[in-house]
């Protein structure tokens, strides 16, 4: 088993941290995993992405050329990653920020109103958790419990209230996948 997963969107949408949480959850499930950010002159509002590879053996390269799965947070990222997807790959689109959701025929498409759901829950900042919840539902590579259990490891200084909000966002993503 080897899954090459890309998370992409705007800087500030919690892309890197969602990827880290995913990698920590995979590691706690005794899987091999790597997390690799796009690095350099990154900024809030600019494009931002990270790659998470999950497998059974030591991961050869953390860099992904053709993703199996992509969590797409905004329109520019959809345009960038659609042509790169592996044949038959999975794309999960944040419908709140992507109007045109048409995709290449072979790509398996899932939609989630991630930003709107996050806002209704109390903070647009939890868009990343809604997207992760949707990812769990769409792929079942990692169990939702594994991610919930890893929240306090990924965010050791977070207040209980923030953890609770993140759990609600993960569950909302899981339950509202289109």
């Amino acid at each position: 088993m080897l899954n090459k997963i890309v998370l992409a969107g705007f800087g500030g949408q919690g892309i890197i941290v969602a990827g880290k949480l995913l990698a920590i959850s995979a590691m706690n499930e005794k899987k091999e995993t790597t997390h690799y950010p796009s690095y350099g002159a990154e900024m809030r509002g600019g494009t931002c992405s990270c790659s998470v590879v999950v497998g059974d053996n030591l991961i050869a390269s953390p860099i992904i050329k053709n993703p199996d799965i992509a969590l797409i947070f905004n329109k520019p990222s959809k345009e960038k990653y659609e042509p790169l997807m592996r044949h038959g790959g999975i794309m999960i689109l944040n419908k709140s920020l992507i109007e045109d959701t048409n995709l290449r025929g072979d790509i398996k498409k899932y939609l989630i109103k991630a930003s709107e759901i996050a806002e209704q829950l109390g903070s647009v900042k939890s868009t990343n958790m809604v997207m992760l919840g949707a990812f769990v539902k769409a792929t079942s590579i990692i169990k939702l419990d594994a991610i919930i259990n890893s929240l306090t490891i990924a965010f050791p200084n977070a207040k209980e209230k923030a953890i609770e909000l993140n759990i609600r966002a993960l569950e909302a993503g899981y339950n509202n996948l289109e």
Binding site: T33, T34, Y36
Partner: peptide, 10 residues
Amino acid sequence: DGVLGQISEG
């Protein structure tokens, strides 16, 4: 190298 610096692993 840049990969080893930036990669996160267990």
